[in-house]
Design a protein around this nucleic acid. Structure first.
Lengths: 266, 266
DNA sequence: GCCGCCATTTGATCTGGATCAAGAATAATC
DNA sequence: GATTATTCTTGATCCAGATCAAATGGCGGC
């Protein structure tokens, strides 16, 4: 299987969107042995509690590009954790388009927004072959009731998601196109780094279209700004392959530097 | 009880921002007698469990316009529920402005985004004299561990907040200024109605500036669109006093009608 | 390897809403 | 009640980024 050789030969390569196939063995890794546990639900749990959590986690077979993990309207049963690969979640717009709500990398949890109505209001679609852990929510809720630290971890995760959405609101409400792209690239960079991959050299698993949609920009704008960043020596773009050549300069773009769009409030 | 007489004498008056003074008695109302319990944490709890929740809730003295409930950077200790009045929450922008993140009406919970980092990342400021229940989070977490339905209610609340943020992302990412205002007005209308107030006649407790900031628009745009809506017979605006004259037409503005801004995806 | 489709880039033009600039209406201060 | 400071409205102008239009380049399918 192709993935095994890749993983064995080059465990640190920043390959995010390469056409790799997931080895079945990868899927059998228990939470306690999972390299993502520090990013995921088991974070901070005792070994015993981690094992109890592990008992309810289902390790599904890998999904492939364009597969749906779930669709808007589906009944909510489980949360999902990305183990390898990448997904996007998006909400259908009443008029027929969609709003990309997020991209999900290994260790990230999908489906938290569906707990309230017990209904998925957005869809999740696979961007590149992905292995995904399924956590039936009813059983998780039973478990959290008896493991205080897991309960707290769940509260934290839900809260973190709110905090993230809040940052996005600020981004969409106040930042220029350039700043949005800079934030996007740096966010990807940091998240990949946390997963032990390169912070400055990676492959995009999403299209320019999806990036634009996510950031509230037209495809053309995304493309133009990528070119501009490249001209300015901030990055090197080759199709899906991204190299960030000047992280500090990108960070500077976000903060006080580039005057952002709309007026500042009273 | 003051709340009761108000409800009895004029249950439909849409007074949201009038300079009313909160009776001290209002503050003593236990959760089980609170008219907001159906919107708030106790929702679905048994009478006994509600009482246990009530034991940990602190009823603070009323806060006045421009008071801070908490500030960005404060240590997180408690969640807050608006009992009467209105608040706004906002995040400071790195460059010195702020992004209004939400307006909070009676029955709504503030502070969920701070659980993760145990730090408030946004500030909450009082728009009009408000009575607020404080719920120390540590004690709430103890309680949720022993009351499964309360735990579930907490999960639901957190999830609902995520869902709400998601809607805002769609609004800021894809909708025109007109649609944003329509969504804003209808959202207020619906929330007031849930609280037993008029859905079509109310007072705004926030400035045009704050509305614009919240919706990612300039003040001038807010003002202009209010005038336009008025010219079109959709509403009647007099300073802070709003009367929605044609709810269906406003709703139509949101959906398929007005072609919205940015392109539809892939 | 060849064909056709889709994604991406680049250029030209258009426009919604920002920004600038005054007034007008209210509210706060003394 | 006069004075000053806000907030809100309205008009004129500007511009970032959308939209339109085309050329180019990869890639999947066969």
């Amino acid at each position: 299987m192709a993935a095994k050789q890749r993983a064995a030969s080059n465990p640190e390569s920043g390959v995010l969107s390469q056409h790799k196939v997931i080895s079945l063995e990868t899927l059998r890794v228990a939470c306690k042995n999972c390299s993502l546990s520090s990013l995921c639900l088991p974070m901070g749990l005792s070994p015993e509690d981690t094992e109890r959590l592990d008992d309810i986690v289902r390790h599904a077979r890998p999904l492939h590009r364009n597969d749906f993990l779930f669709r808007a309207g589906d009944r909510f049963r489980s949360l999902y954790v990305v183990k390898t690969g990448a997904l996007k979640s998006f909400a259908p717009c009443p008029e027929g388009g969609e709003q990309v709500l997020g991209f999900h990398l290994p260790g990230e949890i999908i489906g938290l927004d569906a707990i309230d109505k017990e209904l998925h209001v957005c869809s999740a679609k696979v961007l590149e072959t992905s292995a995904i852990c399924e956590i039936p929510f009813a059983r998780l809720a039973e478990l959290t009731a008896t493991i205080p630290s897991l309960q707290h971890q769940m509260f934290r995760l839900l809260s973190k998601e709110i905090g993230h959405d809040t940052e996005m609101l600020l981004l969409l409400g106040k930042k220029s196109a350039e700043e949005r792209l800079a934030v996007f690239l740096l966010s990807l960079s940091q998240r990949l780094q946390k997963r032990g991959l390169s912070a400055s050299d990676f492959y995009l698993s999403m299209s320019r279209h999806e990036i634009g949609n996510y950031l509230g920009l037209a495809v053309e704008t995304v493309s133009r700004i990528f070119t501009r960043f490249q001209e300015d020596g901030l990055m090197c773009v080759d199709r899906k392959h991204i190299q960030l050549l000047n992280l500090p300069a990108l960070e500077a773009l976000i903060g006080s530097t580039g005057q952002n769009r709309r007026q500042q409030q009273q």
